[in-house]
Protein backbone atom coordinates (compact mmCIF):
# COMPACT_ATOMS: atom_id res chain seq x y z
CA UNK A 1 0.00 0.00 0.00
CA UNK A 2 1.17 3.47 -0.75
CA UNK A 3 -1.02 4.94 1.90
CA UNK A 4 1.74 5.75 4.38
CA UNK A 5 3.63 7.65 1.75
CA UNK A 6 0.65 9.68 0.66
CA UNK A 7 -0.29 10.51 4.18
CA UNK A 8 2.07 13.17 5.44
CA UNK A 9 -0.21 13.53 8.44
CA UNK A 10 1.58 10.72 10.07
CA UNK A 11 4.84 12.56 9.73
CA UNK A 12 3.52 15.92 10.79
CA UNK A 13 2.22 14.42 13.99
CA UNK A 14 4.69 12.10 15.54
CA UNK A 15 2.80 9.95 17.98
CA UNK A 16 3.78 11.38 21.31
CA UNK A 17 2.49 10.53 24.70
CA UNK A 18 0.36 13.66 25.00
CA UNK A 19 -1.81 12.90 22.02
CA UNK A 20 -4.47 10.47 23.08
CA UNK A 21 -5.08 7.37 21.05
CA UNK A 22 -8.16 7.21 18.90
CA UNK A 23 -10.66 4.42 18.86
CA UNK A 24 -10.10 1.91 16.07
CA UNK A 25 -6.48 2.87 15.83
CA UNK A 26 -7.05 5.24 12.94
CA UNK A 27 -4.57 8.08 12.85
CA UNK A 28 -5.92 11.18 14.58
CA UNK A 29 -6.87 14.08 12.36
CA UNK A 30 -8.24 16.52 14.90
CA UNK A 31 -6.48 16.70 18.20
CA UNK A 32 -8.04 18.66 21.01
CA UNK A 33 -5.72 19.44 23.85
CA UNK A 34 -6.89 20.85 27.19
CA UNK A 35 -9.45 23.02 25.47
CA UNK A 36 -11.56 25.38 27.54
CA UNK A 37 -13.89 27.98 26.13
CA UNK A 38 -15.50 30.91 27.87
CA UNK A 39 -18.42 33.11 26.93
CA UNK A 40 -17.44 36.19 28.90
CA UNK A 41 -16.97 34.76 32.37
CA UNK A 42 -19.05 31.63 31.81
CA UNK A 43 -17.09 28.52 30.94
CA UNK A 44 -18.82 26.55 28.20
CA UNK A 45 -16.15 23.93 27.59
CA UNK A 46 -14.10 22.47 30.34
CA UNK A 47 -10.59 21.21 29.77
CA UNK A 48 -11.32 18.84 26.91
CA UNK A 49 -8.67 16.55 25.44
CA UNK A 50 -9.24 13.89 22.83
CA UNK A 51 -8.55 13.05 19.22
CA UNK A 52 -10.86 12.51 16.30
CA UNK A 53 -9.83 9.78 13.88
CA UNK A 54 -9.43 10.31 10.23
CA UNK A 55 -12.09 9.12 7.81
CA UNK A 56 -14.51 7.83 10.35
CA UNK A 57 -17.75 9.28 11.59
CA UNK A 58 -17.48 10.66 15.07
CA UNK A 59 -20.69 11.56 16.83
CA UNK A 60 -20.99 14.08 19.67
CA UNK A 61 -23.87 13.28 21.96
CA UNK A 62 -25.10 14.80 25.18
CA UNK A 63 -28.00 16.77 26.60
CA UNK A 64 -28.65 20.22 25.18
CA UNK A 65 -26.34 22.88 26.48
CA UNK A 66 -23.55 20.40 27.06
CA UNK A 67 -21.22 22.24 24.72
CA UNK A 68 -21.16 19.77 21.83
CA UNK A 69 -22.15 22.36 19.22
CA UNK A 70 -19.77 24.89 20.72
CA UNK A 71 -16.93 22.38 20.42
CA UNK A 72 -17.89 21.60 16.84
CA UNK A 73 -17.73 25.29 16.01
CA UNK A 74 -14.22 25.44 17.44
CA UNK A 75 -13.03 23.23 14.60
CA UNK A 76 -13.71 25.80 11.90
CA UNK A 77 -13.47 28.77 14.21
CA UNK A 78 -17.05 29.88 13.70
CA UNK A 79 -16.96 30.90 17.33
CA UNK A 80 -14.74 33.77 16.26
CA UNK A 81 -17.93 35.47 15.07
CA UNK A 82 -19.28 35.72 18.58
CA UNK A 83 -18.21 38.51 20.87
CA UNK A 84 -16.48 37.81 24.16
CA UNK A 85 -15.39 34.31 23.36
CA UNK A 86 -12.08 33.26 24.87
CA UNK A 87 -10.24 30.03 24.35
CA UNK A 88 -7.60 28.13 26.26
CA UNK A 89 -5.74 25.05 25.14
CA UNK A 90 -5.30 24.06 21.53
CA UNK A 91 -6.98 22.40 18.60
CA UNK A 92 -4.73 20.84 16.01
CA UNK A 93 -5.91 19.65 12.65
CA UNK A 94 -3.42 17.55 10.74
CA UNK A 95 -0.88 18.67 13.26
CA UNK A 96 -1.44 22.39 12.73
CA UNK A 97 -2.61 24.46 15.66
CA UNK A 98 -5.59 26.16 14.06
CA UNK A 99 -5.63 28.91 16.66
CA UNK A 100 -2.03 29.83 15.96
CA UNK A 101 -1.51 33.46 15.11
CA UNK A 102 -0.56 32.89 11.49
CA UNK A 103 -3.43 30.57 10.62
CA UNK A 104 -5.70 31.91 7.94
CA UNK A 105 -9.27 31.41 9.05
CA UNK A 106 -10.62 31.65 5.53
CA UNK A 107 -8.26 28.90 4.38
CA UNK A 108 -9.19 26.80 7.38
CA UNK A 109 -12.87 27.01 6.60
CA UNK A 110 -12.27 25.94 3.05
CA UNK A 111 -10.72 22.76 4.45
CA UNK A 112 -13.27 22.21 7.17
CA UNK A 113 -16.77 22.28 5.76
CA UNK A 114 -19.87 22.72 7.85
CA UNK A 115 -23.53 21.82 7.60
CA UNK A 116 -25.82 23.69 9.95
CA UNK A 117 -28.74 22.64 12.05
CA UNK A 118 -31.15 24.58 9.94
CA UNK A 119 -30.65 24.33 6.23
CA UNK A 120 -29.39 27.68 5.01
CA UNK A 121 -29.24 27.76 1.24
CA UNK A 122 -28.54 31.18 -0.23
CA UNK A 123 -31.45 32.90 -1.93
CA UNK A 124 -29.95 31.91 -5.28
CA UNK A 125 -30.57 29.11 -7.71
CA UNK A 126 -29.68 25.53 -6.82
CA UNK A 127 -26.80 25.63 -9.26
CA UNK A 128 -25.46 28.95 -8.00
CA UNK A 129 -25.53 27.77 -4.40
CA UNK A 130 -22.88 25.24 -5.20
CA UNK A 131 -21.15 27.29 -7.86
CA UNK A 132 -20.70 30.04 -5.29
CA UNK A 133 -18.57 27.75 -3.14
CA UNK A 134 -16.53 26.76 -6.18
CA UNK A 135 -15.95 30.30 -7.31
CA UNK A 136 -14.65 31.10 -3.84
CA UNK A 137 -12.11 28.35 -4.44
CA UNK A 138 -10.98 30.03 -7.59
CA UNK A 139 -12.77 27.87 -10.14
CA UNK A 140 -13.48 29.95 -13.20
CA UNK A 141 -14.11 27.55 -16.11
CA UNK A 142 -17.83 27.08 -16.64
CA UNK A 143 -17.65 23.49 -17.80
CA UNK A 144 -15.52 22.57 -14.82
CA UNK A 145 -17.94 24.21 -12.41
CA UNK A 146 -20.91 22.49 -14.04
CA UNK A 147 -19.16 19.15 -13.74
CA UNK A 148 -18.41 19.55 -10.08
CA UNK A 149 -21.91 20.82 -9.36
CA UNK A 150 -23.37 17.71 -10.95
CA UNK A 151 -20.90 15.47 -9.19
CA UNK A 152 -21.65 17.05 -5.78
CA UNK A 153 -25.37 16.76 -6.32
CA UNK A 154 -24.91 13.11 -7.22
CA UNK A 155 -22.86 12.59 -4.09
CA UNK A 156 -25.51 14.30 -2.03
CA UNK A 157 -28.13 12.03 -3.63
CA UNK A 158 -30.00 15.04 -4.84
CA UNK A 159 -29.22 15.00 -8.54
CA UNK A 160 -32.20 12.99 -9.69
CA UNK A 161 -34.59 15.24 -7.82
CA UNK A 162 -33.24 18.55 -9.04
CA UNK A 163 -31.56 17.92 -12.36
CA UNK A 164 -34.47 19.46 -14.23
CA UNK A 165 -34.56 22.62 -12.18
CA UNK A 166 -30.99 23.47 -11.45
CA UNK A 167 -31.72 27.10 -12.19
CA UNK A 168 -34.77 27.38 -9.99
CA UNK A 169 -34.50 29.07 -6.60
CA UNK A 170 -33.07 26.87 -3.87
CA UNK A 171 -35.71 28.22 -1.52
CA UNK A 172 -38.32 26.23 -3.43
CA UNK A 173 -36.88 22.90 -2.27
CA UNK A 174 -38.30 20.91 0.61
CA UNK A 175 -36.53 21.04 3.97
CA UNK A 176 -34.76 17.74 3.41
CA UNK A 177 -33.72 18.68 -0.09
CA UNK A 178 -32.44 22.05 1.14
CA UNK A 179 -30.32 20.29 3.73
CA UNK A 180 -28.90 17.90 1.15
CA UNK A 181 -28.17 20.89 -1.05
CA UNK A 182 -26.23 22.42 1.84
CA UNK A 183 -24.29 19.17 2.13
CA UNK A 184 -23.62 19.19 -1.60
CA UNK A 185 -22.43 22.75 -1.29
CA UNK A 186 -20.14 21.87 1.58
CA UNK A 187 -18.57 18.84 -0.14
CA UNK A 188 -18.24 20.49 -3.54
CA UNK A 189 -15.01 22.11 -2.45
CA UNK A 190 -13.66 18.79 -1.17
CA UNK A 191 -12.90 19.66 2.41
CA UNK A 192 -10.89 17.29 4.58
CA UNK A 193 -13.42 17.41 7.34
CA UNK A 194 -17.16 17.81 7.31
CA UNK A 195 -18.76 19.20 10.46
CA UNK A 196 -22.46 18.57 10.86
CA UNK A 197 -24.44 20.35 13.54
CA UNK A 198 -27.61 18.30 14.07
CA UNK A 199 -28.16 18.20 10.33
CA UNK A 200 -31.39 16.22 10.55
CA UNK A 201 -33.00 17.71 13.61
CA UNK A 202 -35.47 19.80 11.61
CA UNK A 203 -36.38 17.01 9.19
CA UNK A 204 -39.00 14.29 9.05
CA UNK A 205 -37.96 10.60 9.44
CA UNK A 206 -37.88 9.94 5.72
CA UNK A 207 -35.62 12.89 4.97
CA UNK A 208 -33.53 11.97 7.99
CA UNK A 209 -33.00 8.47 6.65
CA UNK A 210 -31.75 9.90 3.38
CA UNK A 211 -29.28 12.15 5.16
CA UNK A 212 -28.04 9.22 7.23
CA UNK A 213 -27.48 7.09 4.13
CA UNK A 214 -25.64 10.01 2.66
CA UNK A 215 -23.37 10.31 5.69
CA UNK A 216 -22.48 6.62 5.55
CA UNK A 217 -21.64 7.10 1.91
CA UNK A 218 -19.58 10.23 2.45
CA UNK A 219 -17.38 8.84 5.17
CA UNK A 220 -15.39 7.02 2.54
CA UNK A 221 -14.01 10.36 1.48
CA UNK A 222 -14.36 12.69 4.40
CA UNK A 223 -13.75 12.78 8.08
CA UNK A 224 -17.15 13.53 9.52
CA UNK A 225 -17.97 14.99 12.91
CA UNK A 226 -21.64 15.08 13.66
CA UNK A 227 -23.50 16.57 16.59
CA UNK A 228 -26.75 14.81 17.30
CA UNK A 229 -29.27 14.61 20.06
CA UNK A 230 -30.67 11.43 18.57
CA UNK A 231 -28.89 8.43 20.10
CA UNK A 232 -30.26 5.94 17.60
CA UNK A 233 -28.83 8.10 14.90
CA UNK A 234 -25.44 8.18 16.58
CA UNK A 235 -25.55 4.40 16.96
CA UNK A 236 -26.54 3.88 13.34
CA UNK A 237 -24.04 6.06 11.58
CA UNK A 238 -21.01 6.70 13.75
CA UNK A 239 -17.86 4.75 14.33
CA UNK A 240 -16.78 6.67 17.39
CA UNK A 241 -18.89 8.53 19.89
CA UNK A 242 -18.04 11.24 22.37
CA UNK A 243 -20.40 11.95 25.23
CA UNK A 244 -20.44 15.43 26.72
CA UNK A 245 -22.06 16.67 29.84
CA UNK A 246 -22.02 20.22 31.18
CA UNK A 247 -19.10 21.22 29.02
CA UNK A 248 -16.99 18.24 29.90
CA UNK A 249 -16.02 15.26 27.83
CA UNK A 250 -17.25 12.30 29.84
CA UNK A 251 -16.33 9.47 27.56
CA UNK A 252 -14.97 8.93 24.09
CA UNK A 253 -14.76 5.51 22.51
CA UNK A 254 -15.88 3.27 19.68
CA UNK A 255 -19.60 3.67 19.21
CA UNK A 256 -20.30 0.02 19.85
CA UNK A 257 -18.60 0.23 23.20
CA UNK A 258 -20.30 3.46 24.25
CA UNK A 259 -23.73 2.05 23.61
CA UNK A 260 -23.21 -1.47 24.94
CA UNK A 261 -20.58 -1.26 27.56
CA UNK A 262 -19.79 2.31 28.61
CA UNK A 263 -17.03 2.83 31.11
CA UNK A 264 -18.75 5.64 32.99
CA UNK A 265 -21.97 5.56 34.91
CA UNK A 266 -23.11 8.92 33.53
CA UNK A 267 -22.74 7.68 29.97
CA UNK A 268 -24.72 4.60 30.72
CA UNK A 269 -27.49 6.64 32.31
CA UNK A 270 -27.66 8.90 29.30
CA UNK A 271 -27.58 6.29 26.55
CA UNK A 272 -30.15 4.18 28.32
CA UNK A 273 -32.35 7.22 28.58
CA UNK A 274 -32.29 7.69 32.31
CA UNK A 275 -31.65 11.41 31.94
CA UNK A 276 -31.06 13.92 29.23
Amino acid sequence: MVAPLLSPLARVTPPDAASPATPHGHPPLIEVDRLSLYYGAARALHDISFAIPERLVTAFIGPSGCGKSTLLRCFNRMNDLIDNVRLEGSVRIGGEDIYARDIDVIELRKRVGMVFQRSNPFPKTIFDNIAYALRLQGFRRKSEIADIVEQSLHQAALWDEVKDRLHASALGLSGGQQQRLCIARAIAIKPDILLMDEPASALDPLATAKIEDLILDLKRQFTIVIVTHNMQQAARISDATAFFYLGELIEHDATGKIFTNPARKQTEDYVTGRFG
Partner: peptide
Protein backbone atom coordinates in the same frame (compact mmCIF):
# COMPACT_ATOMS: atom_id res chain seq x y z
CA UNK B 1 -30.85 39.28 6.14
CA UNK B 2 -30.70 36.09 8.23
CA UNK B 3 -27.34 35.49 9.88
CA UNK B 4 -27.43 31.93 8.60
CA UNK B 5 -26.62 33.19 5.10
CA UNK B 6 -23.48 34.85 6.33
CA UNK B 7 -22.56 31.83 8.42
CA UNK B 8 -22.99 29.49 5.48
CA UNK B 9 -20.78 31.66 3.29
CA UNK B 10 -18.10 32.02 5.95
CA UNK B 11 -18.15 28.28 6.63
CA UNK B 12 -17.38 27.77 2.96
CA UNK B 13 -14.31 29.89 3.37
CA UNK B 14 -15.44 33.22 1.99
CA UNK B 15 -14.05 36.41 3.43
Amino acid sequence: VPRSYTEAALALGST
